[in-house]
Design a protein around this nucleic acid. Structure first.
Length: 256
DNA sequence: AACAGATTCAACCGCATTCCA
DNA sequence: CTGGAATGCGGTTGAATCTGT
């Protein structure tokens, strides 16, 4: 289509930065044409988000940042954008690259293999994990996916739950047929939700939620767990993510 | 100095989600 | 409700660079 690809030149960068500084980036698709760039909107967005944004930190990650990434990855899996959101000035792409080039090696072979198993902790699956009014589970969705998908999805959702480490061994994953595995996952899944929600229900958790300034916790969040689960939408994701993370902290603390 | 293999990281690709008519 | 466009995300690729022989 006559669009340029490959590395960006300094001139292109200047044009893009100049245009965005002046007009913003309300419409990425229209932006390159209006700015006079022979790039697709997607490419412009990526260049801006990962490289040209003024708030991007340059240089190597600090030890603290690396530790944070390792901790967050342990809890969130390969949800790079979620991890990046906790590290101001760092991009999801950068964190992903750093993980694959440095940090994966640091955390050791066990975690590394866990990482490869985890594969795509897909956000769609996280969202689809709505609770059916009758059964409390979206069974059809779980049964229809492959064992690998089910496991990676599960681990991404429940990475930090103690039940998440109610391990499904490699061999088990390989050996079980899809139906058996789906049933097992449903059991674990239910346990996970109950535990997580129980955490949210406790006064201690509410204190933490308050002090964390999670904004704003849905009014029904604690009083009506399952109704909320079945009606939860994207706006609540940050809230739930904090709950997942905090519940992990609470469990770690209780073990200590 | 020359080469091969390893590493790094910007950019691309495909897919899911969100938005809107 | 539906379908198409726009956006965002995570996995992958490949050129540039580094390192070891």
């Amino acid at each position: 289509m006559g669009l340029k690809r490959g590395p960006w030149t300094t001139e292109e960068d200047q044009i893009l930065v100049g245009y965005i500084n002046r007009y913003g980036h309300a419409n990425w698709r229209a932006l390159p044409k209006q700015a006079g760039l022979l790039r697709c909107g997607k490419s412009c967005r990526l260049r801006w988000m990962n490289y040209l944004r003024p708030d991007i930190k340059r240089g190597n990650l600090t030890k603290e940042e690396e530790d944070s990434i390792i901790r967050l990855h342990e809890r969130l899996g390969n949800r790079w954008s979620a991890i990046a959101a906790k590290l101001p000035g760092r991009t999801d792409n950068e964190i992903k690259n750093v993980w694959h080039t440095h940090l994966k090696k640091l955390v050791g072979p066990n975690m590394a293999s866990k990482d490869s198993q985890r594969k795509t902790p897909h956000r769609s699956m996280v969202k689809k994990k709505k609770v059916s009014p009758e059964t409390g589970h979206d069974t059809a969705k779980l049964v229809s996916v492959s064992p690998e998908q089910s496991y990676s999805d599960f681990s991404s959702c429940a990475t930090d739950s103690s039940t998440a480490s109610a391990e499904i061994s490699d061999s088990a994953v390989g050996a079980k047929d899809e139906t058996c595995l789906a049933e097992e996952l449903r059991d674990i899944d239910e346990k996970f939700w109950l535990e997580t929600l129980a955490m949210a229900d406790s006064a201690a958790s509410m204190d933490i939620i308050t002090t964390l300034e999670i904004s704003p916790p849905p009014a029904a969040a604690v009083t009506d767990h399952f109704n909320l689960l079945s009606s939860s939408n994207g706006d609540d994701m940050d809230f739930w993510m904090e709950i997942f993370m905090r519940s992990g902290d609470l469990q770690e603390l209780s073990q200590i």
